[in-house]
């Protein structure tokens, strides 16, 4: 299992970088409405924050189980927060143009799907449960 650590680290890091980029794209797309910008920033900030914290916790010196736990705990939050973009972007309250709605929902969908797939793979590789 030890030989899988570099691959595991790479997958998690790519997913986290993607989550940060998608969160910035979603925040930028929401800038067409003040309410949306304010609202979605509340979602964007923790995605960036927890992605960076998880990055810092992913030390190659750790054992597979510790790495799995750190990755699952971090990805669990960013993956879940992708659902916020997906479900709230169409809300009439935010009064966003259709293009912005589509961009934010797409960002949310990609964050959630890639996160869920990576979570599943890590859990399977490391043997750490998804509720780690």
């Amino acid at each position: 299992m030890e030989e899988q650590i570099p691959l595991l680290l790479r997958n998690v890091r790519i997913t986290l970088i993607a989550a940060i980029i998608l969160a910035i794209i979603a925040a930028t797309a929401s800038a067409t409405s003040d309410k949306a910008l304010m609202g979605f920033t509340i979602n964007t900030m923790p995605i960036i924050l927890f992605s960076l914290i998880t990055f810092a916790r992913l030390s190659p010196k750790k054992d597979v189980k510790s790495l799995g736990e750190a990755a699952i705990q971090g990805l669990w939050i960013t993956t879940s927060l992708g659902l916020v973009y997906l479900t709230l972007a169409p809300a009439a309250y935010f009064a966003l143009p259709q293009t912005s709605v589509a961009v934010i929902m797409l960002a949310g969908a990609i964050t959630t799907i890639t996160g869920a797939v990576t979570l599943y793979r890590i859990s399977k590789t490391t043997g750490v449960g998804l509720s780690a």
């Binding site: 309410k35 669990w76 939050i77 993956t79 927060l81 659902l83 709230l88």
Partner: peptide, 22 residues
Amino acid sequence: ISVLSYFIVPAWFVIITLGLAA
């Protein structure tokens, strides 16, 4: 289904906060 429940938690806190603010 408990894993699914677990998965919703972070989003739940943000959605409730945004819903309340709105």
